[in-house]
Design a protein around this nucleic acid. Structure first.
Length: 127
RNA sequence: CGUGCAGGCCGGGUGACCGCGGGCCGCAUCGGGGCCCGAGGAAAGUCCGGACACCGCAGGGCAAGGGCGCUGGGGAAAUCCCAGGCGGCGAAAGCCGACGGAAAGUGGCACAGAAAAGACACCGCCAUGCGAGGCAUCACGCGAUGAGUCGUGCGGUAAGGGUGAAAAGGUGGGGUAAGAGCCCACCAGCGUCGUGGUGACACGGCGGCUCGCCAAACCCCGCCUGGUGCAAGGCGAAACAGGCUCCGCCAGCAGGCGGCCCGCCGAGGAGCCGGGUGCGCUGCUCGAGUCGCCGGGGAACCGGCGACCCAGAUAGAUGGUCACCCUCGACAGAAUCCGGCUUACAGGCCUGCUUCCGGA
């Protein structure tokens, strides 16, 4: 995933939090939101990801480790995702230990189902 | 050889495919390639010192704060480094020490003990007054004298007992009613002189005999000290809206000179409500730089020559899937940059030294 496909500005995060829909599970919270032309930035075709890994997840090394794995899992899932959406994934405490025990494949599944859940919730809202 | 000590170093590796950040170069401008580089010894804690940047700068005194405090050297500086002195620990190599002042003052010294700092004597020791009851001698009539016991009063005494981390210099001798630096010798400490050393100090002579410990308790002395930190700061772009209250206006204290006073400057200052921006570039990595060789020095370190360029991200770059090997991988992620300190760290390697103990 390139620089362009990341959320970088706090107004982008605010927009997703305010307008998007969320799905929470044991270790992850996923937000999804499809910006439209009226939202300023204009509609795009790629999916963008923002990450939030709070201090409770672990020390700096652990948080970096978690973010890398989340990006990789997002990259693997992005081909099956709705284009033009902005996503925010929030890690919850305990995620690092869980990934260490269950492996990357498990994380990839969890990410994919969280994102899918967020997208369907967002679609319901829009409809 | 083990053991112990000191110094230095490494911190999983190799290969394949798919990916991430930066720089350069083509094709060529929808995009897609090639090459190179891409976390640490602590990047950490943010505890010191600087560089750099902006703000302040008129001086004097006081206060406050700050750590620091043996000597010589190194270093831009430091609560840093090296070497040495002194003290403590160890068999040794070696390690540890905020290492000025306790005769400026205040304060503290648990428990135990009579007493913890004007020695106010618990037991004991010594001398003596008085009293008690017996003993011996003389006399044998009252009585007198002597040695000692018990009780009590007054005084002398820090040698002994016991307590303690510590008991008023130590040991031995003389001395004394018993004792005491009361006197003497040696040792410790203090003062002074000489010699050696750049110096801290060391060694030796002489002197008068003597001062508990704690300053990382307050404190005293000496030394030092503008503030804020790269979210500093600069350039550009975009956007906006002001209102209310109070104080002051040539002086005399509105306010400023980070606290106070003197003194100086001085026409604007303070608070509340509301509105806008919160984006791009820069600072941003070539530096007290790293490596090698040579020279100086006991070392820290310094000088010369040569080579090298070694992260610059900005919601913040190292990951995923595999395969193989080994001793199965610790602590841990740059955010302006350096120099230190401190703390964390699986396992392993190298060099030098030590010899109480174990083995040959």
């Amino acid at each position: 995933m390139t620089r362009r496909s990341r959320l970088s500005r706090s107004r982008d995060f605010d927009a997703v939090y305010r307008n998007g829909r969320s799905v929470a599970s044991r270790y992850l919270v996923a937000y999804s939101f499809r910006p439209t032309a009226e939202d300023g930035a204009g509609a795009r075709n790629d999916a963008r990801l923002g990450l939030a890994v709070p201090r409770q997840v672990g020390d700096a090394v652990t948080r970096n480790w978690v973010k890398r794995r989340l990006r990789a899992a997002f990259g693997a899932a992005s081909e099956r995702l709705e284009p033009g959406h902005d996503y925010v994934l929030i890690a919850r405490p305990g995620l690092a230990e869980a990934v260490e025990n269950q492996g990357f494949a498990w994380l990839a599944e969890r990410v994919e189902e969280a994102l899918a859940g967020a997208v369907s919730a967002d679609r319901d809202r829009a409809a």
